[in-house]
Design a protein around this nucleic acid. Structure first.
Lengths: 229, 229
DNA sequence: GATTCCCAGTAACAAAAGGCACAAATTAAA
DNA sequence: TTTAATTTGTGCCTTTTGTTACTGGGAATC
């Protein structure tokens, strides 16, 4: 947040404190202690980010971790040649464990995070994270659950790329994407899908055509209408 | 530890407490507080397991987590059809985060763990784990570092299966295996390698033959002598 | 010593995935 | 409107990986 600020709008002091607390209660009220929510409201920064923004990139140093209040973020991996692969999506109430381990260990980010939809999040400085770990059981449990969820999500990703063929992976991808965007219409070009799945545009086009013939979706320019997968 | 005990020898009370403390100091002396090491010695159970034993299987409930004092453990994933894939190795001073999240969340194990070499480990009951988290900073850091390491290791696994071809993966596999077993000789059949890499025996044989022609190794029945990879 | 079993080598073939080239359709820009 | 750029559809070919089938070598067992 100190270097180049990637956020479109950042709420200013006081003016929007009420909204932040309200949003925190909505998302974390059940698992966080009230004083913890108080503290987050005080030190955290609320940010609203439009879709398609890179909020964390490979090689960046991390000094704050994001708590996702609404919207979805996609987390990507990149290899030496710049080839990408979608790892998983983060949704409401989640946080990026990979980022967390990075800022704890003072190492650079290993992943790239891009907003999939418009997103509302709270940035919490890393020092507080450690402090709350000793102080609030709710926070400790949350951090552990996050790790748990991320590890399991990564295992599912491994399952997909190791055990499944591209056609199955494509179907899973479309399902998941439609789920997180809450939209039956995938607003993407074939090339963009190919990047996420780490394959070529031609392959995606071919498989999509096959799915269209099976009446599972309708293809249009720049978007795909899902019928039933 | 309550059901079928998979351990060959389990050290009995008192008799070997000295050895346990000594081993704990050797492996964890630098990062654990002295009273923590005391506590581990008191509640932990030292176990020596020969190579090739399954110490954790998919579907098992976990009530204790292992701290690895020496040797190596391989961690596998399995799909619905019983196809396997090696995820990573655990080595001295490490613990299985996936197992940890399982016992914290009271869920079943998602992975299988098999001793790659003879192994010395301490089993710690899960309740203590939580207790120490609030009590010892050294423990808290250790648990976090473990998660960190596991996540990064899993990311590398994803990189391998997503971005690399089978020949490169095979070379990496042989290197890593030779490293953790501290042995230039891979004592495996081609079929066993094929299981770990989730491919077929014929493919492994083909690629190994190619490596032999490149003078990178020598093939023998039941073992492979690595020259330089 | 003969038999059986396991392991490795190999050829031939099949399937999955990727690459290239180009055409057609549609949109955006000039 | 004309032109340019983008997106998609497809045929053809290559590479990679997987499958089947069969071979012989060697070790273990009878």
């Amino acid at each position: 947040m100190t270097l180049k600020n990637p956020f479109a709008k950042e709420y200013l002091y006081g003016s929007i404190l009420y909204k932040m607390k309200e949003e925190l209660l909505k998302t974390f009220g059940a698992q966080f202690e009230t004083p913890l929510i108080e503290e987050i409201s005080t030190v955290g920064k609320l940010a609203e980010v439009p879709a398609g923004e890179t909020i964390m990139d490979i090689g960046n140093y991390v000094r704050a971790i994001p708590l996702l209040l609404s919207g979805a973020i996609k987390v990507l991996r990149e290899d030496d040649e710049g080839d990408e692969l979608l790892l998983y999506y983060l949704e409401q109430g989640e946080t990026c464990s990979v980022t967390m381990t990075c800022c704890m260990g003072q190492t650079k980010s290993e992943i790239r995070a891009i907003t999939e939809t418009e997103v509302l999040l709270v940035m919490v400085p890393v020092q507080k994270m450690e402090e709350w770990m000793a102080k609030y059981k709710g926070w400790r449990n949350y951090i552990f659950e996050s790790y748990h969820n991320r590890l399991n999500e990564l295992l599912l990703t491994v399952d997909n790329i190791a055990f499944k063929n591209m056609d199955q992976r494509l179907v899973e991808y479309l399902k998941k994407k439609s789920e997180v965007t809450k939209d039956n219409c995938i607003r993407n070009t074939h090339q963009q899908i190919a990047y996420d799945l780490h394959t070529s545009r031609v392959v995606v086009s071919r498989l999509l055509k096959r799915l269209e013939k099976l009446k599972k979706l309708e293809l249009h320019r720049n978007h795909i209408q899902i019928l039933e997968l």
